[in-house]
Nucleic acid binder design. Structure first.
Lengths: 376, 376
DNA sequence: CATCAATATGACTGCGTAGACATGACTGCG
DNA sequence: CGCAGTCATGTCTACGCAGTCATATTGATG
């Protein structure tokens, strides 16, 4: 039994030579046809395609990669979670990658894994990828892996040394600031922050945006409560915050925590938004349907993924050109029913249901999404 | 300038020959060391590893695949959504794949994409994978792609002809049945069903389980309302169901729709669970924190992924052996506050907060998860 | 001490493709 | 009509690794 019998059933896959033989051309010509190279006559192209069809020919990617030095694939490092944010980003990246003709290889890096991102990157490099996307970067100190492909980091500073590192992502700082300012504009004296785990850059950005908003409004900065993105941690934080009567507004670093928070407040007898206003972050699909419908800022995952991949692919394919900076996606505050003016000092013509904010950036409309549930 | 300058910076990656030269051994021996082949002396192994370390050597996966005929990677076909179910399954698959030493290649198939699953599979085969996982199969008729690798279908019948097709997945039918029977056991005369899109096999399974439960209890079968998994569609369905005063219990095919449904009922003035009981499906992380905390059945994504991949890898690596059937993961009903006995006929010693059901399969405990919010 | 098996290593080669270059057919133009 | 330029195709080969088989070294055994 020779080596031919490696694929199943002994009927080894047809190769380009087989197609060539059937079409009466050389192997190289078959290669030309499949790579859309110029200088192939219409007649030959047709014969080749017919022959390939007939044999069920499929290019061997391993051989292509070996011969050309390019794998036409992009590696993605994700956190191993089904969190809405990371999951949405991953899906956006897949779509964008496919649009540009690249395949996707995915590696998780469980949070807390000591090997961490470095190990994930290492594994992608060994698999062979033309570029790497760090989907949700977390701080793990310097990454010491020698990387020889361009790297796209979604929302983090270039945390390690590679020849070509880019960053992309929504302006989380701005988004957080808009969310916080929405509450301040409603008349709240200050805004508490239920932060995400500070190992995540995205969590830090949100903290920073919140700080900036408070600073701009000369508000004092209450202590930060830190969660782990989960609704459960939001609930735990909510129990702490509920006992503090001075809390009238909270900006949660994601919607899940906001939902947990709201429940804790409700369980403690504090009404939302009458006693406490809550703003989330992400605009998860259920946000309009929880009780009360959640005011939040929308993350433009799809746009971010698309822009970022465009950048990455450009750097992969034209290493010389300076990468054109991605246009910042629009900032979108979605006002629903979880925010209201503070209870004590009643403001006439209550500020609810407005998108009044205007910043240094464009804001999308506060779109009523889907069948908009009535307030109550 | 020769071809060597393909990788960036002209400093082409070291190859196994380079390592061999430095270690004073043959290229083949380097290969042996990295593949953990027997018959390598400890001394040589050490020298090789040192040399590799020093040069920053990394195996070239394309060449390995070409030479060995195996890519050591598994392709996953997912729907292009950030839905909790598919996303969780994908993460579970990644974890499981890495545990078995396989890399992951991911392709989306946008729902409604005419090319659909067939195209996704085709693309994976061209990339070269040793096995394929169809993560959330939907019905697209016969898939006519010739597939020569084993295929694992999560929860669907073998919908196309490949030499080796397996299925895995939780027993959705049973889960749906347990959910429905929970409502029937509470005393509801019948249970309505808010179904998922029927192109999805998982949606069909849940419908079937619901049917089975009704049939077993001699309940009549009310008309089915179909959603698209989204909370928005749940809301729309809820508006329909709210006008029908006879509706006292609804089994929603996933938690998101259940959340939308509950909101629509609330907006229509029907209280949950006092007037209408609602059971979801999945046990999404926010389920304990929405209003009211959602009774639901938990999908054991991680266990399903792990079992399924074990099966797939076994078939890949030992094509001869009969695949050992996966053990069915436990069925877990999580009773929270969205279900209660029907309003009219009050049943003494209300059946809430029990996991009384016992079926042909083991049930996990109705674990109080995380900081359990109090009922109200 | 010769013989054989187990161990350790190397030489050679093919995997299927695309890159470099050669070659032949044809075109247009002075 | 001859020569340069374009087009269309072919030949040869490297890509980097693992498979196959040969060979050298050991130790044990009768």
């Amino acid at each position: 039994m020779t080596r031919q019998t490696r694929r199943s059933e002994g009927s080894s896959m047809p190769r380009s030579v087989d197609v060539a033989r059937l079409a009466g051309v050389s192997q190289k010509t078959v290669s030309r046809v499949f790579n859309d190279e110029p200088y192939v006559s219409a007649d030959v192209r047709r014969r080749v395609l017919d022959a390939a069809e007939q044999l069920g020919y499929r290019r061997n990617n391993a051989a292509r990669a070996l011969a050309s030095g390019r794998t036409r694939s992009i590696g993605v490092v994700t956190l191993g979670t089904a969190l809405y944010g990371p999951a949405s980003l991953l899906m956006g990246i897949e779509r964008a990658a496919r649009d540009t003709g690249y395949a996707l290889r995915v590696v998780n890096t469980m949070e807390g894994d000591p090997a961490g991102i470095a190990g994930a990157v290492e594994s992608l490099l060994e698999q062979g990828v033309d570029g790497i996307v760090i989907s949700e970067p977390i701080d793990e100190g310097e990454i010491s892996v020698p990387v020889d492909v361009p790297v796209l980091s979604c929302g983090a500073p270039p945390a390690f040394s590679a020849p070509r590192v880019m960053t992309t992502g929504a302006d989380s700082i701005l988004l957080a600031r808009v969310a916080t300012e929405h509450l301040l504009d409603l008349g709240h004296a200050t805004v508490h922050h239920l932060a995400g785990p500070q190992r995540w850059y995205s969590a830090r950005d949100r903290l920073e945006g919140w700080r900036a908003a408070l600073a701009a409004h000369a508000g004092d900065e209450p202590p930060v409560v830190e969660g782990d993105w989960s609704a459960a941690s939001g609930y735990a934080a909510g129990r702490e915050l509920a006992v503090d009567g001075s809390v009238t507004a909270v900006f949660a670093a994601n919607d899940d925590m906001a939902i947990g928070l709201i429940r804790a407040l409700a369980d403690a007898g504090r009404r939302v938004p009458d006693d406490v206003s809550v703003v989330g972050f992400d605009d998860v699909p259920v946000a309009p349907y929880v009780t009360p419908p959640l005011t939040t800022v929308r993350q433009p995952f799809d746009a971010v993924a698309r822009e970022g991949l465009k950048l990455l692919v450009q750097v992969i394919e034209q290493p010389h050109l300076d990468p054109s900076p991605a246009s910042a996606p629009p900032v979108e505050l979605v006002v629903r029913a979880s925010t209201a003016p503070p209870p004590s000092r009643t403001i006439p013509g209550r500020g609810r249901r407005t998108t009044s904010r205007s910043d240094r950036d464009t804001h999308g409309p506060a779109t009523p999404d889907g069948p908009r549930p009535t307030d109550h």
